[in-house]
Design a protein around this nucleic acid. Sequence first.
DNA 1: TATAATGTATATAGATTTAGTAGTCTTTGA
DNA 2: TCAAAGACTACTAAATCTATATACATTATA
Lengths: 149, 149
Amino acid sequence: MLSKKTRYAIKALVIMGKNFGNEPMQISRIAAEEHIPKKFLEQILSDLRNAGLLYSKKGAGGGYKLIKDPKEIFLVQVLRITGGPIALLPCVSLNFYQRCEECIDEGTCGVRDVFVDVRNASLKILAETSIADVMERENRLKNNFIEVV
Amino acid sequence: MLSKKTRYAIKALVIMGKNFGNEPMQISRIAAEEHIPKKFLEQILSDLRNAGLLYSKKGAGGGYKLIKDPKEIFLVQVLRITGGPIALLPCVSLNFYQRCEECIDEGTCGVRDVFVDVRNASLKILAETSIADVMERENRLKNNFIEVV
DNA sequence: TATAATGTATATAGATTTAGTAGTCTTTGA
DNA sequence: TCAAAGACTACTAAATCTATATACATTATA
């Protein structure tokens, strides 16, 4: 399960994606719109900034905005920055690998072998899906809703 | 990430799978072979038993064994018994659903939409893979190793 | 240049979950 | 009757996650 930190990070990036090309957005505005605790969001945006995804401007009229086009920011990057695990087993994680202490021989572990496949399936989607794709899905869902009603 | 409980559960089922058709295995033996803390394993096997996967026998000469053929026990069942989440977001989980508190409209959430796909991809593998498949993968890995050496 | 708005950094507290342990009871077979 | 084994309940320790608090730095603008 993703941490709230990761979830909030993605949501914040999506909302900044909608604002791409415009002036920076203030933390408090993002926090209010997405119902995210402001102080917590501060930390998260700071991490995303240190990772090179965001530009920030201090002082009055300051805020955050995306450095890159939302088409070029992929979910897998976000998960890695915020430490959200993709793999379901530590011994299968590419970026947060840890040996399973109890394991006798990782190389011949059938359980691990299955969860490598699971990771690859998840990873494929997360590596192909950008912030812009998320925005597009949202639009599609909204339009479908109107059609149905 | 799966809990150790879930990991231990799968490993215990695999080792009992190898023993399928024979006399019950004692907790202490499984614990020793798989390097799992005995008392913790006790709880886990008890859960698997209550869920109908294991037969148990008390007293001298007692122990645990599979009720069903390992071909008929699928990983998804084990995860659900031990509470291991498959979905990466609570609002996407089929069996452990919880609303994301901050979410304004689940129905048009683009993030959720992506993670439904991720869940489906993982679920497909876990619902198709049985304990017997895990055993088979293990054998295949061992044989490949011999060939390579 | 004073002030208010804003981000930065660090520390810490509280809640929750996970992992593991202890102890006692019950059942079974020899 | 005794020892071996599982069943059940409660507890604790550790880790992690979420959130808040505090103090500080920077910037726009009046």
